[in-house]
Design a protein around this nucleic acid. Sequence first.
DNA 1: ACCTGAACACCGTTCAAGT
DNA 2: ACCTGAACACCGTTCAAGT
Lengths: 263, 263
Amino acid sequence: MTDASTTSQPRRRVGRPTTRILTREGITDAALAIVRSKGYDSLTIASLAKHLHVSPSAMYNHARSKQDIMRWVQDRLMASIDTGELRAIRDAVAAGDEGPHPWRHALLAWVVNYRDLMARHTPLVRAIATMPVTGAPETLDMYEVVAGALVDVGWPRERVLPLVVALESFVYGSAYDVSAPDDIFDTAGFEEAAPTLTSVLLERADDAHSYTTTGVGREAFELGAMAIVDSFAAAAGKDSPDAGAWPADIDASAPKPARGRRR
Amino acid sequence: MTDASTTSQPRRRVGRPTTRILTREGITDAALAIVRSKGYDSLTIASLAKHLHVSPSAMYNHARSKQDIMRWVQDRLMASIDTGELRAIRDAVAAGDEGPHPWRHALLAWVVNYRDLMARHTPLVRAIATMPVTGAPETLDMYEVVAGALVDVGWPRERVLPLVVALESFVYGSAYDVSAPDDIFDTAGFEEAAPTLTSVLLERADDAHSYTTTGVGREAFELGAMAIVDSFAAAAGKDSPDAGAWPADIDASAPKPARGRRR
DNA sequence: ACCTGAACACCGTTCAAGT
DNA sequence: ACCTGAACACCGTTCAAGT
């Protein structure tokens, strides 16, 4: 935390300051503060510099490019994903507990939490999905926990990564679905060009202009996530007794949209 | 097709030209030509104008913003997705053919084609995933074909949209996976921070630095897509005889990367 | 209606000068 | 080593002037 962002200060004079002002942590904090309050469009080198009370060029003493800073933000976000249940399973196995371990519940809880975070940071989804784990220690740690829990629980080793990758792909796409505008399926004016689409949509909600109220997104996510987990489990000979049912204590409804400007 | 992009021409003088130079179709053609040859980073109003031999400000007589042009490109891309097998099923049903209809094969073929296209246009995936169908006639048409084929084939009407949305979410995320760099899972230097991840990766390929050669991405996509289709089918009472097996004649390997600069 | 050309606000980034 | 301040190339967009 940098305390530079508290109140307005007298202009600093040129030359190296006596104490360093910027740090990677402080820059990352500032970036996330700007994103949360004003959205990704407002996250510029200039806005960052202003927030930290330095000149824009000062940023380049710590980051080689804006991309660097984005990577710090990404890794920080990954660290905030809740892998608690998966870690608890790993701990239990390490302590000799023979189970049964609630791996299905833990996987679905992780996936919901992951999707909700990504939905609030859609401008970063593409970068996160295609960012190498090298140099992203928190990201690497998340994968290690998930893969480790699956191995600990007796998952066939060669099927661990395909499951993780399939679930993640589904999470990224679902994050977009959550953040889509409510009128994404509004067929107004095109009823005769798309009669089937219009009717199956209308049957799901009184107000077909509101995608959210149709419940389609939520159902797609719950059934899709369970489909992947349970099908991979069946193929791995790891059938779960409650396959097919969504855990009652996991809320998969769409999270509140981000407070900043969307886009 | 505008023929403006053929050879260098003398400078046009100010004032309205005798024949209109720009059209929505010509601008869309030019945009796709630039994207294909030089990538999305090079697609700017200035490069577009240069390609079309007009001044940048001329673009604004046809588009209100660059976003407008991006939407034209998006819709054009959606029109190029192969829905042939799904249309054939609709035609057969309309002609009184009682089947059985190869809906599983048609769905998987569509999904592979969709993913391959999106993988070549990842900078547009987020926009496409969150773009309202209103004003995107080709996009709307694709949804109508998919939803229509499912209804025609006897799919429970209320389950049509959740399946389409779940499949699409998976497609978007998988497109990113395909376009990810080959070293995305390279754990070099972090072997002890992520021992399980490192070992399950090494077991899949001699060269763990090459994600492509591990086959993880392909397996994740095939198993994931089948999981969604077959699980939804089972829930809908529409079990397919070949559930669980990937159709031998559909190639789900990663397509060649785009020729332009990757981001 | 539809083009040119000048101008604007903003973007990320570089670099010399200062301590 | 780490800041300021001036400068640069480029971005999307606006608008007056011209036919």
